[in-house]
Amino acid sequence: MEEKFAHPELRKPEHLVYKTTDLMVDCPLSYCPGCGHGVVHRMLMEVLEEKEIASKTIGVNPVGCSVLAYDFMNIDMLGAAHGRAPAVATAIKRLWPDHYVFTYQGDGDLAAIGTAETIHACNRGENFTIIFINNGIYGMTGGQMAPTTLPGMRTSTSPYGRDIEIMGHPLKITELIAQLPGTYYVTRQSVQTPSAVRKTKKALRKAFDLQDQKKGISFVEVVSNCNSGWKMTPVQSNIWMEENMFPVYPLGDIKVDGELVTRS
């Protein structure tokens, strides 16, 4: 294809300002077009690259759309049974305390089937990082209702919208685990705009920096889209997310240096 506005004179190594890190495997991602998982993967790999800790990092992938994260992240990873990633990460970190360890989990994985593992790892104050991708739905299996699904939100198992009288309230598991003394840094971010992406990267950086201090769990929630499950275009889903998800899951730090952040 002929490019109309190409500038070959700029396309030189000395002018390079951004390229995908080599810690992302050079292969197509299995995610739907526009899905936030890919951005979070890349920011995570950028943090490991900048900290030069890729060879000392072990990730635990979940069951969910990101089950294949081990194919995309060029680091050591272990797959956990659905929801059990924090238990597996506990073992890894205790056996290899000088390694950086993280779990990468969806809301179905972390806040439904894995609630017990999440809460107890956080309560024990394990020294690893939990990355929690909250898209309010079970993406992988066809868009079923998750504990995080919004009131009134339509999913394949709540086709008339989530009725909180019958189906309960959205579970704000991030606020919940922030109450536990074993968590040291708890934040909620997103990746739909350039500035949001930069903030998420900063939060991930901080979470990994804190593993050196051994003060407990660093927990980074990323509110993300599932345009397939939500049945919207990617751009629509990002707008819908800002308008509907953020009021229920407000962005920002929830706990810093072991202290809950008071919001005015």
Binding site: M1, E3, K4, F5, A6, H7, L10, R11, K12, E14, H15, L16, V17, Y18, K19, T20, M24, P28, L29, Y31, P33, G34, C35, G36, H37, G38, V39, R42, V191, Q192, T193, P194, V197, R198, P234
Partner: peptide, 28 residues
């Protein structure tokens, strides 16, 4: 995605948000 004008400043915004990480940016 294709470039449709000559206004690019190499700010990298597009590359940052690209879920598939397929944009490389140059600036001089």
């Amino acid at each position: 995605a294709i470039k449709v004008n000559d206004e690019c400043t190499g700010c990298s915004n597009c590359a940052l948000v690209c879920p598939d990480g397929v944009i490389t940016v140059y600036r001089a």
